[in-house]
Design a protein around this nucleic acid. Sequence first.
DNA 1: TAGATTGTTAATCGATTAACAATC
DNA 2: TAGATTGTTAATCGATTAACAATC
Lengths: 219, 219
Amino acid sequence: MPNKDERSFKMSSRNRILRLSRYKNAVLRLKSLNFVRIFSDNLADATSVTASQVRKDFSIFEIRGNRRGGYNADELLNQLNNVLGKDKLREFIMVGVGNIGRALMRYPGFARSEIKITAGFDIDQTKHAPDSDMPVLPMEELANYVRKNKIELGVLAVPDFSAQEVFEIMAKAGIKGILNFSPIRLHSDKNVVVSNLNLETEFENLIYFVNTGTVPAEE
Amino acid sequence: MPNKDERSFKMSSRNRILRLSRYKNAVLRLKSLNFVRIFSDNLADATSVTASQVRKDFSIFEIRGNRRGGYNADELLNQLNNVLGKDKLREFIMVGVGNIGRALMRYPGFARSEIKITAGFDIDQTKHAPDSDMPVLPMEELANYVRKNKIELGVLAVPDFSAQEVFEIMAKAGIKGILNFSPIRLHSDKNVVVSNLNLETEFENLIYFVNTGTVPAEE
DNA sequence: TAGATTGTTAATCGATTAACAATC
DNA sequence: TAGATTGTTAATCGATTAACAATC
């Protein structure tokens, strides 16, 4: 839990949070161009939304600017990072060290961010590497590792036939949020938030819009 | 282009198409349980939407059932596959054969589907493997390969600093649809459909919903 | 036929946008 | 101060849901 008040948590749609991530990325880019003040119009242009939408989103998270002076770039970045939980390091375990799992463990894009995958778990003992600096451990050690290291987040990247079973192992171990790359759609109960990312579905979506010659709405 | 009439193409939202993919996956599962007739209520349960939503989605794509008898499982699967372009093999090139690119090239989930990555391209010559059955070729050969093999679709998985440049190479070569895994948001012009999938953003989204203890709406 | 389910229309809900008063 | 931009309210738009007549 971040240090902010419970009051500041708003029930928000997935799309709104996705936009906040994009604003954050745009602010990073504008800052690298030495912007000190950023206007809602700047962010609107950079992320292809309306300026009204930007101000509305900010307003919902009580991100306040300066009438006439826009938003201070540093402050804005801080506030967005705060909402997105980038105020401190977030540690993940990777469950399933196959193609996708291994790729994510090595993904350099996380290096600059506050996201870190600290260990992998797999049933295949040929993949085990307990002494690596990013260790791969047997599934049996998952619960213990999660407890000892106070891990709350995990990525699930196992084949379809074991997804449900592995989900339950993770939930039982106390994992609170799972990013699910398996092709099985998992349903979150009260205790675990699940975010499903189905690769085949993403490909199918692109194929549809290419076939029809239409353009999908911006996410 | 699929064999269907232009008239049958509806301008549709990304979310609607994502739901069609899910219905399709649910139908596959129900068929494997020997279902012959499928009701809108069955799909509603299986995909966590309302039965009204299912019928509305079908109605928009002129997928017709039988009053009283629901939808014939085989017919329904066919019609959904048709809309989603799974009526024939779709060939992709992979541009950027790093962690993510390689993982997708080897992803077994595509084997059963009508999605195939036929070749990879990379500037790093240590990655080149022109004689492999899934060849990795130099970037210089991309345009030629695309033309010769009539490729329309591609995955972009290069680092941020080269994303824009590589996008333009792909567009110029005649690629019509790009699934973009790079952290740079690309914008589609009239000629190329771009679908952006930002991994960091997906992680941030999960983190937000775990932190706030709220549950994201079903996509 | 009687009963159940579709297909579609109308009602509702939520998200986006426009407009503008507040104010820096 | 005059002018420009925010923050918020009201209007619009689009997507979801409810309801029910059509019909198998």
